[in-house]
Write a protein that binds this DNA or RNA. Structure first.
Length: 160
DNA sequence: GCCAACGTTGGC
DNA sequence: GCCAACGTTGGC
């Protein structure tokens, strides 16, 4: 299993929107970048991802999702009324794909981009790099674990 | 609203 | 195949 980071602008689709979906599940449509698409095509059911709010105040990681369906054609690409319409993608030859994700957990508080950049173990995360624009990025197991300790700072003194 | 960084497009 | 122009992303 692998770890990922999914970006979304909360004005478009927030973690609270996901929470309200049936089964708290959504198809991650609208990705129109080849590198991000290729990452999605490698995802397996059971892979986990951070839900990241971009263009937010503050930007940061707000929760965890789980891949529940592997990549399948993004039908919004052939919907002329969709903002993500792409005339070069057809049902016969789909160009864009999406995975389905289910909400696992919404964090009590946002792990802000600022906190990520401040953290010696996290500042190398792709999302923290200057000029990063990829909406789907891989996360290493070490980064994953470190973010989880930030979500629950007391986990390292769980005896009390 | 600004603008740096990046990906894509299209003329040549 | 090069690269300038353009559109988009996303932090600030």
């Amino acid at each position: 299993m692998h770890f990922w980071l999914f970006k979304s602008e909360p004005k478009t689709f927030s973690i609270d929107n996901l929470k309200k979906q049936p089964q708290q599940t959504t198809c991650w449509d609208g990705v129109r970048n080849y590198q991000a698409r290729n990452f999605m095509r490698t995802m397996q059911v059971g892979d986990r991802g951070f839900f990241y709010h971009s263009n937010a105040n503050p930007p940061g990681i707000v929760g965890i999702v789980e891949v529940v369906k592997t990549a399948h054609p993004d039908f919004t690409a052939w919907d002329m009324h969709s903002p993500h319409y792409d005339a070069d993608s057809t049902p016969e030859h789909p160009r864009w794909f999406m995975v389905d994700v289910r909400l696992v957990e919404k964090f009590d508080r946002c792990i802000t981009l600022d906190a990520i950049k401040q953290h010696s173990q996290l500042r190398s995360m792709q999302v923290a790099r200057k000029g990063n624009r990829l909406s789907i990025t891989p996360v290493t197991p070490a980064e994953w674990q470190t973010v989880l300790t930030l979500d629950n700072p007391r986990s390292d003194r769980s005896s009390r």
